[in-house]
């Protein structure tokens, strides 16, 4: 099977962010970067499918040069090769624009399955995978928690997560796009051997300007302002040492809230 995984590099999830000078994003100068969580799960699934059915796993990333570090991690986990669409100036930001660029690159590629994350941990639009499917004219399934591929029949079964603890199996003809949900499996660590091999694997750089994409024709959305939400703290915050707050809490649960 030919598997293609879209990886996005995002700022470290656990950092406390600062707003940038323009007020339209976060300061990235002092941050470290990592692979968006759902995307890492989608790479893991691609590797599993290759182990089961043979074939190839390719990574496709849109981002600046620093994204190479995340791609190397993906290659060390076991991907065979990678394509980085270089956007050093950060021109392509909205999901529709990203999907148009990725779709253009994919015209030159062969694949049975494209796997993306359901949503990213930075802007969290949850759009790119589905936009990509429609732009490529492919069927899709979102929020996928299990995959069973049948390459001989050119079919894939995907388990979709639904609301309130429900799940549903769907079947799609391949090629298809699946957007992967966090928690689908356990993500492997790169082995030392994998890390060594990754250094020799190909990362093909594609310049944005070499692609035939007219960014001006994209139905855009614009982020005017980014800010910290105003917190209306409802909670009564208990103050004091550990012993004191615990004592107050038990007292309040018994006498005030009367729940114990």
């Amino acid at each position: 099977m030919k598997l293609l995984t879209c990886l996005k590099q995002i700022p470290d999830r656990d950092t406390r962010y600062e707003i940038n000078a323009a007020g339209t994003g976060i300061k990235t100068s002092d941050l470290t970067f990592e692979i968006s969580e759902c995307d890492e799960y989608s790479l893991e699934e691609s590797l599993k499918l290759r182990e089961e059915h043979g074939g190839e796993v390719a990574i496709l990333t849109l981002g600046p040069q620093r994204a190479e570090k995340s791609i190397r991690k993906g290659l060390a986990m076991g991907a065979d090769r990678a394509i980085l669409v270089r956007d050093d100036e950060g021109k392509v930001t909205t999901p529709h624009a990203v999907a148009k660029v990725l779709a253009e690159v994919l015209k030159e590629e062969e694949y049975d399955l494209i796997l993306t994350g359901t949503q990213s941990d930075d802007w969290s639009y949850a759009q790119t995978g589905v936009l990509l499917a429609e732009l490529l004219g492919l069927p899709h399934a979102t929020i996928v928690m299990e995959i069973r591929a049948d390459p001989a029949q050119k079919k894939v079964k995907a388990l979709r997560e639904m609301e309130s603890g429900w799940f549903q199996w769907v079947e799609l003809p391949m090629p298809a796009v699946l957007t992967i949900q966090a928690g689908i499996s356990q993500i492997r660590y790169a082995s030392l051997k994998g890390i060594m091999q990754a250094k020799k694997k190909e990362i093909r750089n594609v310049e944005l300007s070499d692609l035939n994409v007219d960014l001006s024709s994209i139905p855009e959305i614009e982020v005017l302002k980014v800010y910290f939400p105003v917190v209306e703290k409802k909670a009564e915050i208990l103050q004091g040492s550990t012993a004191e707050v615990v004592e107050q809490l038990v007292e309040k649960l018994k006498k005030e809230a009367k729940v114990l």
């Binding site: 700022p11 962010y17 969290s124 139905p219 855009e220 959305i221 939400p229």
Partner: peptide, 26 residues
């Protein structure tokens, strides 16, 4: 409401930040 236009508020970065987003499309 921003003038005659609607601006939409959404959360991002695992709900740590809010963003005001405006459409630039038809």
């Amino acid at each position: 409401k921003e003038g005659d236009d609607f601006v939409f508020v959404r959360q991002m970065f695992r709900n740590k930040l809010n963003a005001d987003v405006q459409f630039r499309s038809e």
